[in-house]
Every structure is written in C-alpha cells, then in structure tokens.
Computed example of a mutant assay.
Amino acid sequence: MAGDVFTPEQRSAVMRRVKARDTGPEMKVRRALRAAGVGYRLGGCGLPGRPDVVMKGRKSAVFVHGCFWHGHDCPRGARKPKGNAEYWTSKIDRNRARDARVADELTAAGWRVLTLWECDLKQPDWEGRLLTALRSEPS
C-alpha cells in the first residue's frame, strides 16, 4: 500500500483516528512520572497551550509533541507530506509558531517548559533526562 493514494473519504477516516489526548507517547511519560513518584495534573490547569502534564508545585509544564505534527528536525518530523502538501506545510508551520509563542508566555509567567519529542522517548536514557530536568533549578 506504499504507493497508494487515499480517497478523500479514506483520508478523513484516517485523520479521525489520530488522537489528540492520551497518545502512546503521553502515556509513556505519565507512567514514568508516576513510577518515579512525581505528582502531576492533566488538562493544562488553565495554562496557555494546555500542557500535556502540569506540576504546579514545581511550576513545570510538559508538552509531549509528535515529531511530524509539530515539525521536529528529526527524520520523522522532516518528512514532507505527499498529499495536500501546501496545506500540511502551512499547518505544521503554524503549529511550530504557536508552540514557540506558548513556551514564551509560560516562561515569562515563571513556568519551566519541558518539551519531549516522540523520537526522544525512543532513547534509552529519556526517563533519567526528564527526571534530572525536573529536579534542576529553572534557568
């Protein structure tokens, strides 16, 4: 099916199945935090950008980004969409701009912003790096 092109109806069905919450990478981060005894809240707690995980006491907001959807500079994020390329390129550019704006707003309000990329979670030491970042003083 590598060279097949979806009909608009098929593409719509595929896109409807893309989750916005409780994704595999988000669940992986939440399991690691819970196992480490780190308390957190979901739903963004009214913060800009609705972070995936919020630790109010640590004043830390964690975003778990999919590499493709948020335009990461890894191989998966650098893939160019084949169908409706102009729309998707523009959409990903808007996502990146929004992500930067939200991080700036949170930082200006005194929050530490941690962004975990989908590809980061495939590295063997990602949990240790996350916990170290949470324990360190904000810069």
Rank of each mutant, 00 (worst) to 15 (best):
A61S: 08
K56E: 09
C74A: 08
C119Q: 06
G110P: 00
H65E: 04
M27E: 12
V64C: 10
R34V: 02
D99Y: 05
A36N: 06
V64K: 13
L33T: 07
K19A: 15
A78I: 03
E9Q: 14
K19S: 14
K82L: 11
M27Q: 15
V102Q: 03
L121M: 14
L106G: 01
P8S: 10
R58G: 08
W69F: 09
M1R: 11
L121H: 14
D104V: 00
D120W: 14
R21T: 05
A100R: 09
A13P: 00
D125R: 15
K91T: 01
A103E: 03
K91W: 04
E105P: 00
H70L: 02
D93S: 12
F6V: 01
G83R: 11
K82C: 07
V62A: 01
D99N: 14
F63L: 09
L130C: 13
V64N: 11
W126R: 14
R135L: 09
T132G: 15
T23S: 12
P48C: 06
G77Y: 05
R50M: 12
D120R: 14
L121D: 07
H72V: 02
N95K: 05
A13E: 04
G77M: 10
A97I: 01
P25E: 05
V113N: 05
P8T: 02
T89R: 10
M55H: 04
A2Q: 09
G71Y: 06
L134P: 13
D22M: 09
W69K: 04
K80I: 02
M27C: 13
F68H: 15
A2W: 07
D22P: 05
L131V: 03
A32P: 14
D22T: 04
K59S: 01
V113E: 01
G43R: 14
P75Y: 03
M15S: 12
A35M: 12
L116C: 14
A2G: 10
G3H: 08
D120H: 15
E9C: 09
F6G: 08
Q10D: 05
R101A: 09
H70R: 02
G57P: 08
A2R: 10
W126A: 10
Q10E: 12
L106R: 00
V38P: 03
R21D: 06
Q123W: 11
W88Y: 07
F68C: 15
M27D: 06
V53W: 06
L47Y: 02
V62E: 00
R34Y: 09
P25L: 10
H70Y: 07
A103N: 02
F63H: 03
G71V: 03
V53N: 08
R76D: 07
G24M: 13
D93T: 05
P51C: 12
L121Y: 13
R135Q: 13
R112Y: 01
T23L: 08
K122D: 08
C74E: 04
D125C: 11
F63T: 00
R31E: 12
P25N: 14
G37P: 04
R11I: 01
E118M: 13
D104M: 00
G128L: 04
A108C: 00
V14S: 09
T89P: 00
L42G: 12
R96D: 01
G3L: 09
R96Y: 02
A97R: 10
A13S: 07
A2N: 13
Y87G: 07
P124T: 06
L114Y: 11
A85N: 04
G43A: 13
W88H: 03
H65M: 02
